[in-house]
C-alpha cells in the first residue's frame, strides 16, 4: 500500500541525495517527519523490493563500459524458463527478459551485455550461445545513446 507520504518521499529519493553530513535529516525536514522515519521507510522499500537499490547511478561509458550490445535470442517456448535462467547467471548480463515475437522478428529472449569493447561483447554472446545451445541469435550494438535518465514516479499527481 503506497500512501501519500510514501509518494512524497519517493519524489525526494528519485532526485539526487544532498552531499551534506545528514542528508536524510534534510529530506525529513522538508516532509515534516523525523529522520528515523525517513530511514525506516527507505529500509522498508528495500526489503519489500519496491526500491531495487539505493545508491549511485553511474554513467557507464565514462567508467570504461563503452560497448553495450543487446543480445536477442530465438528460444523455443518449452525451453524459455530454463534458458532464461542460464542467461541471467552470466555476470556480464545486466538485464534478461522474455518478450513477444512478431512478424520478421524470431527472437524471444533479450539480454543486455556490457563490455569494455565490442569484441568482448561478441565473446560473451558466443559463450552464452554455447552454454544454452541457442544458435539463432543477434547482437545489436548501440551506435548512439540518445537518452538515459532515471524515471521520476508520481510526478503527474504532484
Amino acid at each position: 500500500m503506497i500512501t501519500e507520504l510514501d509518494k512524497k518521499l519517493i519524489r525526494f529519493l528519485q532526485e539526487d541525495l544532498p552531499v551534506t553530513s545528514r542528508p536524510y535529516a534534510k529530506i525529513a525536514q522538508e516532509l515534516e517527519i523525523t529522520e528515523e522515519e525517513v530511514l525506516s521507510r527507505i529500509t522498508k522499500y528495500l526489503e519489500e523490493g519496491s526500491m531495487r537499490r539505493f545508491g549511485v547511478a553511474l554513467r557507464h561509458h565514462k567508467v570504461g563500459f563503452t560497448a553495450n550490445g543487446m543480445g536477442t535470442w530465438d528460444v523455443p517456448e518449452e525451453r524459455a524458463e530454463e534458458v532464461g535462467k542460464i542467461m541471467a547467471s552470466f555476470p556480464e548480463v545486466s538485464h534478461c527478459y522474455q518478450r513477444p515475437r512478431f512478424d520478421g522478428w524470431p527472437y524471444s529472449h533479450f539480454t543486455m551485455l556490457h563490455g569494455q569493447t565490442r569484441e568482448e561483447c561478441e565473446a560473451i554472446a558466443k559463450r552464452i550461445s554455447e552454454a544454452t545451445g541457442i544458435t539463432n541469435y543477434g547482437l545489436l550494438f548501440s551506435t548512439a545513446e540518445l537518452k538515459k535518465t532515471s524515471m521520476r514516479y508520481f510526478m503527474e499527481e504532484k
Partner: peptide
C-alpha cells in the same frame, strides 16, 4: 563524491524503484 558528480561519472545518488511494484507498466519499444 562532489568531484565525481562534477565530472559526470556519478549521474545521481538515490533510489532505483521497481516500476511494477509502484503500479507502473514498463516496456521496450522498437
Amino acid at each position: 563524491i562532489n568531484k565525481l558528480k562534477e565530472e559526470g561519472i556519478i549521474r545521481r545518488v538515490g533510489g532505483v524503484f521497481d516500476s511494477r511494484k509502484l503500479g507502473y507498466k514498463s516496456s521496450l519499444c522498437a
